[in-house]
Amino acid sequence: MSRTARLFQLMQALRQSAPPVRAENLAGEMQVSLRTIYRDIDSLRDLGAVIDGEAGFGYTLIEDATLPPLGFDDEEIEALVLGLREVGQTGDPSLAEAAKRALSKLKGRLPPSQSHRLEHAVLSARRFRERPKPGIDPRALRRAAWDEVSVAFAYVDKEGHATKRSVDPLGITALDEVQCLLAYCHLRQDYRSFRLDRMRDLEVSGDSFRPKRVPMLREFIERIRNDPFASANSRNPFA
């Protein structure tokens, strides 16, 4: 097999496999050595493919430079408008502003007929009860999760007990009334959730837990799905 054909086959495997894909599985599927897989991953990155991950943890195809931009059908546009308007209503100020910018960019890049549909979408979003305001900067918390670095903060639980927590931030989930951080708590040595409105004095450390965020988040969500009370000492993990 030529190198070009092998790179094409590797890209197809990354597109079609559930991420993250381990190098051992790719090597077995393509019948090449692990060293060849590592070298070919680097070659695809040099050609413009955005591939997250590294040896030992698996690979995820984030952006495929060989595929053309996607178009949207009418219902996809309605879904995008509804989602962005919901963020505008319920997100923190920086996210609400980002949603407004995203809608403006979409409108400018769609053909005229679809741009009109976006501006006058049938669906909308309104929220009449505001969520409690976060006690920390959500943008800094999101950045820490993306960068996969630990954070510390003061926290007051629903019983009024104050503690200092150091956690690995995995993701933020928006519920009907509150926003919660899903995290691995160093104090409890287990997964925990924390309401953003009960958090104070956020400190971002330089301690990295890369590249474990995605598998840890997947494990936590699976635990909640199987038993929503197990991850918080028999209490609701979102309380």
Rank of each mutant, 00 (worst) to 15 (best):
T90M: 07
S234Q: 15
G160I: 06
D137G: 05
V214T: 15
E97S: 13
E54P: 01
E159H: 08
Y38P: 00
Q89L: 08
F220M: 08
I224A: 07
L110A: 07
A121Q: 02
V151K: 01
F8K: 10
L82Y: 04
D227L: 00
P169V: 04
E76V: 00
N236I: 01
R45N: 10
E159D: 11
D92K: 00
G160Y: 05
I77S: 07
R142L: 01
P237Q: 12
N236T: 02
Y184G: 00
N226M: 09
V156E: 13
S43R: 13
R188Q: 09
A98K: 15
C180V: 15
L103T: 06
D147S: 06
I62Q: 12
F209W: 12
D147E: 05
G171N: 06
L70G: 12
L217W: 02
D207A: 13
R200L: 12
H116E: 15
F8C: 01
L170K: 04
E54D: 09
E24N: 03
Q114G: 08
R131S: 03
D197W: 08
D207N: 09
Y191M: 04
R45M: 08
Q189R: 14
A96F: 00
P93D: 12
S234R: 13
W146D: 12
V167Y: 03
R195W: 11
P138M: 05
I37F: 01
F229M: 14
I62F: 10
R188G: 06
S104Y: 11
R188V: 03
A13I: 05
R142W: 09
E86I: 04
R6K: 07
V156F: 00
A174V: 15
L110Y: 06
F72G: 05
V21Y: 02
I136A: 04
Q9T: 11
T163I: 05
E159I: 09
M1H: 12
F8Y: 14
E63T: 13
R131W: 03
W146T: 11
G108R: 15
R3S: 07
A152Q: 05
P237M: 05
R142F: 04
G56P: 02
A49V: 14
V156W: 05
T173V: 15
K212H: 14
I224H: 15
M216N: 08
R3F: 03
R143M: 08
E222D: 12
G56M: 00
D190H: 07
L84G: 02
A152G: 10
I41G: 03
I37G: 02
L202I: 06
R15D: 08
A144L: 05
T36F: 01
E75R: 10
I37C: 02
Q12G: 13
F57A: 14
V178E: 11
G58D: 00
S166G: 07
V50T: 14
A121C: 08
I41N: 00
R117H: 14
R126P: 01
A232S: 11
M1K: 07
R225Q: 11
G88P: 00
